[in-house]
């Protein structure tokens, strides 16, 4: 099997999963697609260094997530006309959050309302099943930052998803 066949297998195996994780983090289909695409291009460049097959999925997800965060930052500076509605959906104002509270909110709507740094940590913890230590190592964040972000993200999400219950308690 040559390198390109191996890479195609890698792509077929992981594309859908990496795309789903990135989509949860980016909350924008176009950004998720581009970021996942970029992650595989980067992976191809470093194919010879990707020896540990168990870690490839994590590695791809982290690269795609970083790409998505960069793209979201750039979107703030340059907004394609056709995507204005989508950008509005990425960052919701506090008023939007209050208005949304009156309606029943699903998890994807709730994720859209929180900052991407919280979304990322929530996806790594609850979707990918990482421990706090693994998150810290993967995202190169100090343990204290991981803990505080996770705690803050949970409180905000709980507030959005279950507005009638008290949650403003620091754990």
């Amino acid at each position: 099997m040559n390198e390109s066949e191996l890479f195609r297998i890698l792509f077929d195996t992981y594309f859908d999963r990496v795309y789903c994780s990135t989509c949860l983090i980016a909350q924008n289909d176009l950004i998720a697609r581009d970021a996942t695409q970029e992650a595989f291009i980067v992976a191809h460049k470093h194919l010879d260094r990707l020896q540990d097959l168990d870690k490839i999925y994590t590695w791809l997800t982290v690269v795609a997530s970083n790409q998505a965060k960069d793209m979201i930052k750039k979107h703030h500076k340059c907004i394609p006309v056709a995507s204005i509605d989508e950008i509005d959906n990425i960052i919701a104002s506090p008023t939007d959050i209050m208005e949304q509270k009156d309606k029943e909110i699903d998890i994807r709507q709730a994720l859209k309302m929180i900052d991407v740094k919280y979304r990322e940590i929530i996806v790594f913890k609850y979707y990918l099943g990482f421990t706090e230590q693994e998150i810290g190592e993967t995202l190169e964040l100090p343990a204290g930052t991981v803990k505080s972000r996770l705690s803050r993200a949970r409180i905000i999400l709980k507030d959005i998803l279950e507005p009638d219950t008290e949650s403003g308690v620091v754990l």
Binding site: R108, L111, Y127
Partner: peptide, 16 residues
């Protein structure tokens, strides 16, 4: 509940 909801949300995503 959060983990479950995320899993369901991910399952509903249609990849390109």
């Amino acid at each position: 509940e959060l983990a479950q909801k995320l899993q369901t949300a991910a399952n509903s995503i249609v990849p390109p």
